[in-house]
Amino acid sequence: MSNFPLEAHDLTVAYDRRPVIYGVDVQVPEGKLIGILGPNGAGKSTLIKAVMGIVPKSGGWVKVFGKPFERNAARVGYVPQRESVDWDFPVNVMDVVLMGRYGKLGLTGRLSSSDRDAAADALEKVGMLPFAKRQISNLSGGQQQRVFLARALAQESDLYLMDEPFVGVDAATEAAIIELLRELKSRGKTILAVHHDLPTAQTYFDMLLLLNMRLVAFGPTEEVFTQELLQKTYGGRLTILAEVADQRVQRK
């Protein structure tokens, strides 16, 4: 009996008949902090969107805790890319975090005081409770990301899918987020986060999923974070060492 938090078989997604991800087979074990790595256009965001049905699958299947996603949607928390929403939208921080509770309410249910308590707890955890009444455009990038994270916490899920949670945030926020993710993991939650920074990937994640249209490798960080596999992921023309060397030359 396989009840992996996330299991995909031959998962394929195509836009306009052009495949974006192709034949991805993966079985994600419980209670791990997993980084999804790959070059731009490798289909990292598409992979997690396809899991949740945000983009349609062209082939293959996905199971979440042993069932199709729709039947277990309430057990999945989602943190979209920060730029994917309009931050001028007339809602305040509390309104956004409360959206995390909508999934459990059905189409026309009403928010209860326990929903408000859960939202306040989530804000407290990311250090944003004093900003609860603040309009969301009056926040820094790091604060906006914390609000999104609080919303995911308010979902009280078992599997979290996060799209670039570290992009455009300050160092303090990045440290706070990673501490929070480790705390979630210690409570048996499973987290998959799209990530783009190689040096930190090695220290942040237990496991890495290397993706470049196809699944290149998936396994414990110490086994997967090798020159050979990374080169395979990011393309032979561009080795990581060469990239770093380039940056040094440019600085001079």
Binding site: K49, M52, I54, Y78, P80, V85, M99, Y102, G103, R151
Partner: peptide
């Protein structure tokens, strides 16, 4: 506000 999250919630 967030069509992606809406879709993920059914």
């Amino acid at each position: 506000f967030d069509p992606g999250l809406a879709r993920s919630m059914g």
